[in-house]
Amino acid sequence: MSPHTDGPRVALRGLHKRFGRLEVLRGIDLEVQIGEVVCVIGPSGSGKSTMLRCVNRLEEPSDGVVEIDGEDITARGANIDAVRSRVGMVFQQFNLWPHMTVARNVALAPQRVKGMTKSAALALARERLAEVGLADKAEARPAQLSGGQQQRVAIARALAMDPEVMLFDEVTSALDPELVKEVLDVMRRLAGQGMTMIVVTHEMGFAREVADRVLFMDAGAIVEQGPPEQLFGSPQTERLKTFLGQVL
């Protein structure tokens, strides 16, 4: 499954994205190593989410290459469904499926994509739900859960596919402040277990504490990057200084 396990898990090379005449990504180069946690910060409209969505091609890059484990997933003939089954994603709006129970939400892809039996998939779902502290909510409907619980189910749903990398797209931005911590705790634990993660976030505290590397994006480009203590402690560019001045 992994052609080059010693190379980077995710690599973006010369990535461009244009919506009509608007250039949202202006040449992104990024390598994320196995087990690395990369947090992406920057003002809204800087292209953070678009970059993340290019990693599993929910957004089609206009130009450039996306590699997962050395495999060019933007190549003609690449099996994008197979790639996506190895790349987990969690969304700002949870996007749970409201017409199914929580357990079915988590079990659906293992059953339909990996071909597990229904009972095996449901057993796996209960396991994953237990890991995010929601074993008792398996039979509930998403609408009966709080935002924080829903987001933890969404994380369990992505984890049920045993992904090689997890993408988090501003996953706490739609949550009430008191519900943010329970979601970040799950992510913190996941990082501790060695999961490769790309996290687009406004939670500077989380980035400072959990990230191996922080990227600052502005106007469709990576402006500055480095370990969190360097980026937050001694920002080099005016743009990052201004940004940090606004958010901290």
């Binding site: 599993n56 929910l58 469904d81 197979a82 996506r84 089954s85 190895r86 790349v87 987990g88 994603m89 969304f91 709006q93 996007n95 749970l96 499926w97 659906l108 892809a109 339909r112 994509v113 969404a154 749903r157 992505a158 049920a160 596919m161």
Partner: peptide, 22 residues
Amino acid sequence: DKGQMEAARSVGMTYFSAMRLV
């Protein structure tokens, strides 16, 4: 909501299974 389709595609479901099941 188009997020429903995106969530289904993001776990590796094909367009048609996502349509049919979600």
